[in-house]
């Protein structure tokens, strides 16, 4: 099912200026910035979620302070290469 796209995003992507969009939508620049921040933050994945997927054993995607994934895929009781 095709999702419904916020027309303001579509217009921004088509090259319409922020000023024009604000004028057409009755938004101040401050309101625009808040709206934009809301839109982009809502698209950030929840990195603490659990998903049921086509894996044979549970896998954790652990992210460090810089968001870099560490992915240990070890079957139960099977250690990784010794360091």
């Amino acid at each position: 099912m095709k999702k419904s796209v916020d027309d303001r995003l579509r217009r921004l992507g088509a090259g319409e200026s922020i000023q024009s969009l604000c004028a057409a939508s009755g938004m101040s620049r401050q309101q625009f910035d808040a709206w934009w921040q809301g839109r982009i933050r809502s698209r950030v994945p929840d990195m603490e979620a659990s998903h049921e997927l086509a894996v044979k054993r549970p896998v954790r995607i652990e992210r460090d302070s810089w968001g870099i994934p560490h992915i240990p895929a070890h079957g139960r009781g099977r250690p990784g290469p010794v360091l």
């Binding site: 990195m47 603490e48 979620a49 659990s50 998903h51 049921e52 997927l53 086509a54 894996v55 044979k56 054993r57 549970p58 896998v59 954790r60 995607i61 652990e62 992210r63 460090d64 302070s65 560490h70």
Partner: peptide, 9 residues
Amino acid sequence: IKTQTTLNP
């Protein structure tokens, strides 16, 4: 480690 996403069978 700061976050953990879990993929379960």
